[in-house]
Write a protein that binds this DNA or RNA. Structure first.
Lengths: 346, 346
DNA sequence: CTGAAAGCGCTAACAT
DNA sequence: ATGTTAGCGCTTTCAG
């Protein structure tokens, strides 16, 4: 039942009474090897069940053909779609992908980045954890000029490529929509504003209020981590206000959902009494009742772009030094939870 | 702006005028090195920004401290929870995890397994794609006695460890529940029955009917891939029958949801006119209206178990040769979509 | 077109 | 307690 060590190019070489370098070249389709010997070698390799040892190859080549991804949670539709986009491009270009999740924990993010570096990934694609407020761990990559692309949750001070959406415009658009629907006292549930995404969405929200001569009130802006629990706490807090809001723009769909569940329970009608809009178009937002209006980001396409950009960087190392920021379009998905009037002209 | 090659143990050794092996030993806390030199070496390593080259270490040690996971889709709550379970155990035991998704495609699954093998993972945890009807690609692992654990979607003919739930019992339980609720003509939407999960669920369904003196009718059992689209097609087909069913037990929540959406649209009331039960407790099933009854599998715990089993195998290589099958408990989650009567005594 | 030899960075006998 | 040496499996000059 036991087995001997793996078959290596040396085993093949010995069998064929040729040198290991010839075997290596043949298997890599080096043009300097005659078709005849290539055929001979390849068929023997097959017969002997040869499997290249990528580790050895990687060590020798100083290249792993692997790209690392760090996301907060693979469990979110936005992130898993993004990952699928990355994988498509990566596999088509001959790269493997190592996926890791930080669980929104800074310490875990650090360990992961460390580990991906030690494993010598050729490039890294990352979206920051909610806790991330320092960035030294990424210097491992920047110091050694290993390509690095951030997406979604990025910070301005990072000198790297970035794939984002225009969160300011999105925040504005969402808020304007609520205003158009006749809501007048609009609250906002924001995530940690160290992260540009949450910061910009909030600023867009404020700007929309101002443009419409509505006042921005601190008590209507709540900051937390946007979990289900956080959403419920936030809506309780808002409704307990002397002068409660009549709508909320939530930083994600999860918190919007939990607000909705709570309000249904206590008899607040959506959208008649209260307007609600989420963010990121999680699959559930379409199927709950009432369905939740939200903002759709092109997650898959962002993944494609991120991978393309990263791989181009990897393969033209040290050519460019100017960091690109690619802003992708978003779409306002209007559903029942915010639709009190007939839809306005687009 | 440019940088030189990485600092290696040789650089440290040269600086300190000692040998590379001493450096290596010190960094690995080998007891044969004096504390004084250890301190000296470690602090210099830190100062020089030394980062171990795991690739070289892996090559030398013939061990990567990495375990591979293949799942159909990381995007499903069941799988992502499972993965989190694996990660918890793996990280605690000093292993990295490489996650890959087959997208339910046999060809992609083969490539992934191949690639994980070439990357010399120390062990593999896998759940089969819906298309998987041959298993030769896993022989790479079995032939070389590399530990292998299957979970959820497994097949009997594979000689390997398995983490499963008792799908037969679960199918029975779900069907019995519908019968208890007074439904009498119960259909079943099944996935590919090459996979034990779907096969066993279906057999459990049949057995429950028989035990209750209900006849098993072929026209009430539909096979497909359980996508949203598949669910809709299936319910149309069932409702078009001369003698349509009054309830369905669906192989997953996704198809149950799409059935529900369709039936709501055409005015069939759930659960009054029609009973529905899904499988796997996706988060949305709780929040849709009516909420969907379903079966809950202990995904996270299954991940823990799988990782524990795999790592034990890795670390006691060739000790055991008898394959374990661990069956985990499931829970019937009764919600609105199947609850026509008052709940029976548990 | 093919071979010999060196080396990627690390570890582990086997020295001393 | 530390050094010497060899080698993990592969690729790639350099030679012919």
């Amino acid at each position: 039942m036991d087995e001997k060590a793996s078959v290596t190019i040396h085993d093949i070489a010995r069998e064929l009474k040729i040198s290991a370098s010839t075997v290596s070249r043949a298997l890599n389709d080096n043009p300097r090897i005659s078709q005849a010997t290539k055929d001979k070698i390849k068929s023997l390799a097959l017969k002997m069940g040869y499997q290249p040892n990528i580790i050895a190859s990687n060590l020798r080549n100083q290249k792993t053909n692997t790209i690392g991804i760090v996301v907060p949670l693979i469990n979110r539709h936005f992130f898993s779609s993004f990952i699928s986009g990355v994988e498509d491009v990566a596999f088509a270009s001959g790269y493997n992908v190592i996926i890791s999740q930080s669980n929104d924990l800074l310490e875990k993010e650090k360990k992961i980045v460390q580990s991906l570096f030690s494993n010598r990934v050729d490039g890294l694609i990352a979206s920051l954890s909610m806790q991330t407020n320092e960035f030294d761990h990424f210097q491992l990559f920047t110091n050694k000029n290993i390509p690095l692309v951030f997406f979604d949750r990025v910070v301005p001070e990072l000198e790297a490529h970035k794939i984002v959406v225009d969160d300011f415009a999105v925040g504005f658009k969402a808020t304007q929509h609520l205003i158009d629907q006749g809501y007048r006292r609009i609250a906002h549930l924001a995530g940690p504003t160290v992260l540009n995404t949450y910061h910009d969405r909030m600023e867009g929200y404020k700007e929309a209020l101002r443009k419409n001569n509505l006042t921005v009130e601190d008590e209507l802006i709540i900051f937390n981590r946007l979990t289900r629990m956080d959403g419920q706490e936030a809506i309780k807090q808002l409704l307990a206000l002397p002068h409660p809001p009549d709508a909320v723009f939530c930083g994600n769909d999860t918190s919007a959902l939990s607000m909705m569940v709570y309000m249904k329970k206590i008899g607040i009608r959506i959208p008649e009494d209260f307007g609600l809009i989420g963010f990121s178009n999680e699959p559930f937002s379409e199927v709950v009742t009432p369905s939740i209006s939200t903002l759709q980001q092109p997650a898959f396409e962002m993944g494609l772009k991120a991978a393309e950009l990263l791989i181009r960087e990897i393969e033209t190392k040290n050519k460019t030094q100017n960091y690109q920021t690619i802003t992708m379009p978003t779409e306002l998905v209007i559903r029942e939870s915010s639709l009190r009037n007939a839809p306005r002209s687009a």
